[in-house]
């Protein structure tokens, strides 16, 4: 019921929202000195509060990077936890400036909901996890299985599509909170647990009674490009969020890290000079300070650093770069040229 109330409040906010809000998010953020981001209620590696209540994760760092670019300080952020149902209404009503909540980029979410997606900060895919003792080697063997899934996600529809395409039947057990989905699966109520593969890895590492008892099956049931989301009709703000992502990817490609960014200012590479504001102009084009990308890299890091720290080799999840490697290394991460 709490959720329904929050939703009702959000709906009322839509109802009372003053007319004509196009364009002002960047001005609002600069005036208030804070970027408000919608995040998960807790997903390791993406957005989760630590013991001190400080949020960490790849989505959180995306939000921090935007704050660094706009306000010169990544700590000028505020996080609003949102359930899968609340998230879109919260963005529509203007309660949050950006949604950084491992949200899949789909056509209807842009077309019908009135959003625009920034470049993905994580290319994911839906997978299935099973208990090892079930002896299942492939998702194609799951005919007739009971599958645990969180409600309000693209996962729920993909699950149906996948079983339909493979002419198999299944029984979904759809639960609202991720904690309860996990409880149900680890207690044996379901034969399989389906979610984004990064989420399965996070759950197995953090919630499974014994992580070695569970396997993630090799099949990838869907494409899940996870990206930051903003409202349509506010192009300046959209550009800021989009180019924040590109700057982090370009920085990794050019070997600019949070450690060496000051030395790199002396680089002869014209693209690095433009990126770091040594040759001015780029910041002005985005209505930002010339040190926008410098601050992102110095205070938050390049894409590789963010990946490794939150979900990659330096984290508990230990996920491979896979599709999230740079395009120069066979991945999909491709930053548009800063010029």
């Amino acid at each position: 019921m709490i959720k329904a109330t929050t939703l009702a409040v959000a709906l009322v906010m839509v109802a009372f929202a003053g007319p004509a809000l196009a364009g002002p998010t960047l001005d609002k953020v600069k005036k208030n000195g804070v970027v408000t981001c919608g995040v998960t209620t807790g997903l390791a590696g993406f957005s989760i509060p630590d013991r001190q209540g400080k949020y960490t994760g790849i989505d959180v760092d995306t939000c921090r990077a935007v704050a660094a670019a706009v306000l010169g300080d990544p700590d000028k952020t505020k996080y609003v936890p949102a359930t899968t149902q609340q998230r879109f209404t919260m963005l529509q009503s203007g309660e949050i400036d950006i949604l950084t909540r491992n949200t899949t980029w789909t056509l209807t979410r842009e077309g019908d909901l009135g959003f625009l997606f920034a470049p993905p900060n994580y290319y994911d895919g839906q997978g299935f996890m099973v208990a090892k003792k079930a002896g299942v080697k492939s998702a194609k063997e799951l005919d007739g299985a009971t599958v645990c899934v969180q409600s309000g996600t693209t996962t729920e529809s993909n699950l149906t599509d996948y079983f339909r395409a493979n002419k198999m039947t299944f029984k979904p057990l759809v639960i609202e909170r991720l904690d309860e989905v996990e409880n149900a699966f680890y207690s044996g109520r379901c034969d399989s647990f389906t979610a984004d593969r990064s989420g399965l890895a996070a759950s197995r590492a953090g919630k499974a009674p014994n992580p070695d008892d569970y396997v993630i099956l090799p099949e990838i049931a869907s494409k899940e490009p996870l990206a930051a989301v903003v409202r349509q009709g506010d192009d300046e703000w959209f550009e800021v969020v989009r180019w924040t992502m590109f700057a982090m990817i370009d920085a990794e490609e050019k070997g600019v890290t949070s450690q060496n960014v000051d030395e790199m200012k002396k680089s002869d590479d014209p693209e690095i000079q433009r990126m770091l504001g040594v040759k001015p102009g780029m910041g002005k084009s985005l209505h930002l300070g010339e040190d926008w990308a410098y601050t992102i890299i110095k205070r938050v890091g390049n894409y590789g650093e963010i990946f490794d720290r939150n979900v990659g080799k330096d984290s508990a999840l230990k996920l491979d770069r896979g599709l999230n490697a740079l395009w120069t290394q066979g991945g999909l991460m491709y930053g548009m040229p800063i010029r």
Binding site: A4, L7, A8, L11, Q85, S151, G152, S157, I175, E176
Partner: peptide
């Protein structure tokens, strides 16, 4: 009975939640 969303029984509220998320028509669905 709408509290069933918490324990995964597909009653009216649970189905509405899924519909709402898939279509984004929050105001209509609610």
């Amino acid at each position: 009975s709408s509290l069933a969303v918490a324990i995964g029984f597909p009653e009216l509220m649970a189905i509405t939640n899924t519909t709402l998320n898939n279509t984004g028509q929050a105001i209509e669905a609610i």
